[in-house]
Design a protein around this nucleic acid. Structure first.
Lengths: 197, 197
DNA sequence: CGGCACCTTGACTGGTTGGTCAGGTCTGCT
DNA sequence: AGCAGACCTGACCAACCAGTCAAGGTGCCG
């Protein structure tokens, strides 16, 4: 039985933990920081979560579903070019709206994905393999150019996530302007040309 | 005056520090780990470097020069398409040969580039601004398609560094195969099509 | 081969951090 | 109102970690 207070505080804690973990990495984050952001005492954090590790795991568990949704939403019966472009747009939108989640994921994979290995080689791999088959069919139907489906997917990840993960760098180079300014149009053109049969 | 032993040990320490910092991030790394990898005692590390911070800074100072070299090597008087493709190839080669450096950089930028802000907004920004001018000239000369120079450069960074930084993820998806297998050809095609006037 | 500067380390310190606990406070229900 | 259970916290602990130091070892020069 979960109470109203439990729901509110768990949400607050995860929100704060996302802030801190995504900005400092797992080892860089401290419970005191998270407690400060959440506006709760440190022992209170540990009343709701067994350990720092448990908070991190809770975030990662939610994350993969969110992360995979745009790829999962690709319609095998749709037009190849349209579907892939729409996927890219959804993914870019996620970088814009959920940059902290992107950085949490990046931090984790950068360090060898110790806590995500199972899910990546399970759910994620299965989904990517499936969509690779779909992309190959679009190729054989002549809807898009013959490109390696895996590298195509990786390139969408790389280009969209880069704007969230390397935000600090881009911002410094572009004098603080919104890093994603013009990104939509650029990526649209890029993938449009790449997929042109 | 630097002795033979000093040179050897400094090199050993920085080598070990690169291993550990790139895999664990700054806060995640401990002097004991670095000492272990270097095969030296912890106090001995601190005989050669004033602090953990100093080791990290020494690595970062070397890094930016290495990192910028491929972009700097672009020849303004060459053919636009050839020059940009060659730049992309050099950058991809660096991801292959120096993945630890790539991850060290990624770790740093991901956490807001606290120790690199000056160099990024200084040297790096200047270089990028200069090369953007060169790229615009190539565009006006009709050598390459009209694309935003900044996003073009970002896309090269994103696509090449992704193979080093997200190595763990790609490896899990591709059943442990070399993540960069086929990347050369894919990126060649991608940028060739993008730059086609 | 003697001496001096350079090199190395075991043992220690002070500060930080994840986590515990005993006891107090609040909330919702009857 | 009164009480049971949920919620909260100050004080504390053990482990860890960057950095110190005094004392001994080593390489190199005359």
């Amino acid at each position: 039985m979960t109470t109203r207070i439990q729901r509110r505080n768990r949400r607050r804690i995860l929100e704060a933990a996302l802030d801190v973990f995504s900005a400092q990495g797992f080892r860089g984050a401290t419970l005191d920081q998270i407690a400060g952001v959440a506006g709760l005492s440190k022992p209170n954090l540990l009343y709701y979560f067994d350990s720092k590790e448990a908070m991190h795991r809770a975030l990662l568990d939610d994350l993969l579903d969110i992360w995979l949704a745009p790829l999962r939403a690709m319609n095998p019966d749709g037009n190849g070019r349209e579907e892939i472009l729409a996927y890219m747009r959804r993914k870019l939108q996620m970088s814009r709206e959920l940059p902290r989640e992107s950085r949490l994921f990046a931090n984790e994979v950068l360090q060898g994905a110790p806590r995500l290995a199972d899910q990546i080689s399970g759910d994620l791999k299965r989904l990517v393999d499936d969509q690779a088959v779909v992309i190959r069919r679009w190729i054989s139907m002549g809807q898009i150019a013959a490109v390696d489906p895996y590298h195509l997917i990786f390139s969408i990840w790389a280009l969209t996530q880069h704007y969230a993960d390397f935000d600090a760098q881009i911002r410094l180079i572009r004098d603080g302007a919104d890093p994603m300014d013009g990104a939509d149009g650029f990526l649209e053109t890029l993938f449009d040309k790449l997929l042109q049969p």
